[in-house]
Simulated assay, not measured.
Amino acid sequence: MINTRAKLRVRVERFPIRGSFTIARGSKTEAVVVVAEVAAAGHVGRGECVPYARYGESVDGVAARIAGLEGEIAAGLDRARLQERLPAGAARNALDCALWDLEAKTTGRPVHALLGLPAPEPRLTCYTLSLDAPEAMARAAAAAGRPLLKLKLGAPGDAERLAAIRAAVPQARLVVDANEGWSAEVLPRMMAACAQARVELIEQPLPAADDGALASIPRPVPVCADESVHDRAGLAALRDRYDAINIKLDKAGGLTEALALADAAERQGFFLMVGCMLATSLAMAPAMLVAQRARIVDLDGPLLLAHDREPGLRYEGALAFPPAPELWG
Rank of each mutant, 00 (worst) to 15 (best):
I2E: 14
I2V: 15
T4M: 09
A6D: 09
L8K: 04
I17W: 00
R18T: 13
G19Q: 10
A24Q: 11
T29A: 11
A31Y: 07
V32K: 15
V33M: 08
V34F: 04
V35M: 10
A39F: 07
A40V: 10
G42S: 07
H43M: 15
G45C: 09
V50D: 03
E57H: 08
V59M: 07
D60Y: 06
G61Q: 03
V62T: 13
V62A: 08
A63Y: 08
I66L: 12
I66Q: 03
G68W: 12
L69K: 11
G71E: 12
E72M: 13
I73T: 03
R79E: 14
R81V: 10
Q83K: 07
G89R: 10
A90D: 03
A91V: 05
R92W: 10
A94D: 05
L95N: 00
A98N: 06
L99I: 01
W100H: 10
P110V: 07
L115K: 09
L115H: 12
L124C: 13
L124H: 05
Y127R: 01
L131Y: 06
L131M: 08
A133Q: 15
A140E: 14
A140M: 11
A142Q: 15
A142N: 05
G145H: 11
P147N: 12
K150E: 01
K150Q: 00
K152R: 06
G154F: 02
P156F: 12
P156Y: 14
R161S: 03
R161L: 06
V169Y: 01
P170S: 12
Q171M: 13
V176T: 06
E180F: 13
G181T: 08
E185H: 15
P188V: 06
C194T: 14
Q196W: 09
R198E: 15
V199L: 12
V199Y: 05
I202W: 02
L206G: 00
P207T: 14
A208W: 15
D210P: 00
D211A: 01
L214C: 04
I217H: 03
P218Q: 11
R219L: 11
V223Y: 01
C224M: 14
A225Y: 07
D226I: 00
E227Y: 01
V229E: 15
A233K: 11
A233T: 14
L235D: 04
R241Y: 08
R241W: 10
A244D: 07
I245G: 13
K248I: 06
K248E: 09
K248N: 09
K251E: 10
G254Y: 04
T256D: 14
E257T: 03
A258E: 02
L259M: 08
A260K: 14
L261C: 10
A264T: 11
A264N: 11
A264P: 03
A265M: 11
Q268D: 12
G269R: 11
L272R: 04
C276F: 02
C276N: 11
M277R: 07
M284W: 05
A291P: 00
I296T: 13
D300A: 09
L304E: 07
L305S: 01
H307A: 09
D308G: 00
Y315F: 15
E316W: 05
E316A: 13
G317V: 00
G317P: 00
L319V: 06
P322G: 11
P322F: 08
P322L: 10
W328K: 09
